[in-house]
């Protein structure tokens, strides 16, 4: 089975369905092994330069990509909007042309507008990775979640029942994850208040529930989305306390889960809102592992885009 010939990773769709996703997850195993060595670094992308172009605040995703690039011996540059010429009014197009003129091979883009990485990819010779665009997609998050889950449930996720709980409407993680989980044979249920569900869910490979206690019966994985506190003022739910009571994974709800049900969260956590602190720190929580696996998954992605995908000669 050949590896997918990837130029950009803008959406989960670029991975080429189940076979391509599984090839990427298999490749990630190689990098987990590299990261466990005394010298957790290989010269695979020596001489390549990767720029992180972040138009939104982020610590874990940016550091995870930069660590991944450094572990592959690529050079990294960081472009953060708060200290850059964007403050002086430079457009995205001009910024991309400017950094591309410095001779780069990969651009990792995070942007508040859906589709911005697609635009960057259309302007640039470099490979582009979408590190989160608006409410659209966050494909490396979906990959690292599936990889983490596979490590606990074996190579096949067929029939795995996953509840994605919270603000589905505004979540790029929900969009990428539902596509990727569905491609791997999982059954996904979205859970949340109607005000935080998309108006239309036609064509989404997921069922919808508005009652968390109903949805948690016999569930294998509870995937909690972060409640973005800035939404509170938009009258989408009455109060943080009411949200936590109806849709938070409280200690009491966690105690009713099957013993082997796993809990995941893309971070950063709002402890006491979508997840109780003791549930986040319990043995069923994979949250720390998700972060750890993020580096290996992003190494696999950067390697696929910049290393192995060259033309056959």
């Amino acid at each position: 089975m050949p590896e997918p010939a990837l130029k950009h990773l803008l959406s989960v769709d670029d991975l080429g369905g189940r076979a391509g996703i599984e090839a990427m997850l298999d490749l990630t195993d190689s990098f987990v092994e590299v990261l466990a060595r005394d010298i957790p670094k290989v010269p695979a992308l020596r001489g390549k330069t990767v720029v992180s172009l972040f138009y939104e605040e982020s610590t874990r995703t940016r550091l995870s990509f930069e660590t991944a690039a450094k572990r592959l011996s690529a050079d990294t540059m960081t472009f953060s909007v708060s200290t850059s010429s964007v403050k002086k009014g430079e457009s995205l197009l001009d910024t991309v042309h400017t950094i591309e003129a410095m001779g780069i091979d990969g651009i990792v883009v995070r942007h508040p507008c859906a589709g911005a990485p697609h635009r960057v990819a259309s302007w640039s010779q470099a490979s582009v990775v979408n590190a989160g665009d608006g409410r659209h997609e966050h494909p490396t998050q979906a990959l690292l979640d599936a990889f983490t889950l596979r490590r606990h449930r074996g190579p096949s996720l067929d029939g795995c029942r996953i509840a994605i709980v919270g603000d589905v409407k505004h979540s790029r993680v929900a969009r990428s994850n539902v596509k990727l989980f569905d491609a791997l044979g999982c059954e996904v249920t979205f859970v949340g208040p109607p005000t935080l569900m998309p108006e239309r869910l036609d064509g989404w490979p997921a069922t919808v529930s508005y009652d968390l206690d109903d949805a948690l019966v016999d569930i294998d994985v509870v995937y909690l989305l972060r409640i973005q506190r800035e939404r509170i003022g938009q009258a989408l739910f009455p109060s943080v306390r009411e949200y936590a009571a109806r849709y938070g994974l409280t200690s009491e709800r966690a105690s009713r889960l099957k013993p082997d049900t796993l809990v995941m969260h893309p971070g950063p956590l709002n402890r006491g809102v979508e997840i109780a602190a003791d549930v986040a720190d319990s043995t069923r929580s994979l949250i720390t592992e998700q972060v750890a696996n993020g580096v290996a998954v992003r190494m696999a992605v950067l390697w696929s885009l910049l290393g192995s995908g060259g033309p056959v000669i």
């Binding site: 050949p2 590896e3 490749l27 992308l45 290393g307 995908g309 060259g310 033309p311 056959v312 000669i313």
Partner: peptide
């Protein structure tokens, strides 16, 4: 690396 497909 980069001249031909290389996979682990």
């Amino acid at each position: 690396i980069g001249l031909r497909p290389v996979q682990p």
